[in-house]
Nucleic acid binder design. Structure first.
Lengths: 236, 236
DNA sequence: ACGCACCCTTGATAATTGTCAACTGTTCAT
DNA sequence: ATGAACAGTTGACAATTATCAAGGGTGCGT
């Protein structure tokens, strides 16, 4: 009766660099026990400290990774389609270090962690892809640490804007991909401080209108922000 | 004439979890073009931005990883025997994100990055070990980010002391493994601030005499520091 | 022993960042 | 339309952290 079930379309997952080189058989094994679920906004998907039962893949929407300590909370990252999160915990079979919640209505694939580990052993192309992905994740977090330790909040914001602009192919005007409260937390500052930081960037040609940013003087802003490939270039 | 050369002893490297499960043949291939070098203190081994030609293994001494931006510098980590550094860059064949310098006289193994990548493809046990190692590295950096974003400098210091104490099997008195200037940088603060932070921990039973720390009231300090396994336990 | 570095500390001050409270503007359900 | 809820902003203030300058202590080479 296999006709009646499991016609779920995993082609979007398959297209991910992480899974693209796998053998068809190994991929079929991996998605056998997987399932796709759609969540409403503001739903907590995982909690830090929980055992890592599933590797998650965001197909649609947006997921926010955050952490808490002593009644404080901070946004660690935002995951947008199509990519995975909590890969390291799944691989190590260790508890999650971050919690995750949907920011909007989101469609997420859940792959049992044990199947991921099995696929890793069974399929060497998958193993290679995992290592490459993990190394990239590691390097991203290192860059973020440099950003946090070497720059003031104003410099972090300026460089964030330049990165966003580059991600939108360099147009002078673009929209922030998230609300300002989350952005503040992601950048390691308070919302009040972010408000003032935007004002402080006005002399460098940054205009803010709601969530729309205009960079009037690219040179000037870059002169202040001093972007550095070893911090701001997320492709290397 | 192989008797005359290359009798270098790589057993310390072999014992590392990263290499322990490799086949003898793969390990021999990996070590073939490797070499061991002894460096005096304060020598810069690698510079951020350089291509990652070698995976490094510290056999003796201590190596400091640091980063620079805009004339500022910060200590990212300290590597002690026996472990590797800049694994992610080697794997991805990407430029180093951090510089490295010896803190003391140090003996370091240099493994050509291309041989590491070759061994990764040839030996699946090695591939598995690399993934496990990388996942652990990733999780360490995430924990460090949480430490930085969720805690004040005083809280970071308090938790650092508790971690050090645990690493020394919980004895009330122990020595700092590094000078205070580097420690300050590692914790994301200035030396002056670290000095004052130590003073601020006196009421919680922390005594400082040179580089020797005594924790007189474990409970009290823990009450302030609120250590958390998802930040401070580096084994998970 | 002496002087010279160098690290650490301390004090004074400034810059940065966070907190609290109030206010604006918008959204959205009723 | 109305008003509750909420994100964002602003101002006043406090806490945290950094900077600058000076002094104390220690180690080391001569």
């Amino acid at each position: 009766m296999r006709v009646a079930m499991a016609q779920t379309d995993y082609s979007a997952v398959r297209d991910l660099r992480l899974f693209a080189e796998m053998s068809d058989a190994a991929f079929a094994d991996l998605v056998r026990a997987a399932y796709v679920q759609t969540f409403p906004p503001q739903i907590q998907l995982i909690a830090e400290g929980d055992p890592s039962d599933f590797l998650h893949v965001v197909l649609d929407g947006a997921v926010e990774l955050f952490s808490e300590w002593n009644r404080r909370e901070t946004v660690m990252a935002t995951v947008r389609p199509t990519s995975t999160f909590i890969l390291a915990a799944s691989i190590r079979d260790a508890p999650y270090l971050m919690s995750a919640r949907t920011m909007e209505k989101s469609r997420v694939v859940l792959l049992p962690s044990q199947d991921v580990r099995a696929a890793f052993v069974a399929d060497s192309a998958f193993a290679r892809a995992i290592v490459s992905e993990l190394a990239q994740c590691y390097r991203s977090v290192v860059k973020n640490t440099k950003d946090l330790k070497l720059r003031t909040s104003l410099e972090r914001l300026a460089n964030y804007l330049l990165r966003q602009q580059r991600a939108r192919d360099g147009s002078a005007t673009f929209d922030l991909p998230t609300d300002k409260r989350r952005l503040a937390s992601r950048l390691g500052m308070t919302p009040e401080n972010l408000s003032r930081a935007f004002k402080s960037l006005q002399p460098y040609g940054v205009d803010v209108s709601g969530g729309t940013i205009t960079i009037n003087d690219q040179r000037d802003l870059e002169g202040f922000a001093k972007p550095d490939a070893l911090i701001d270039d997320y492709t290397t």
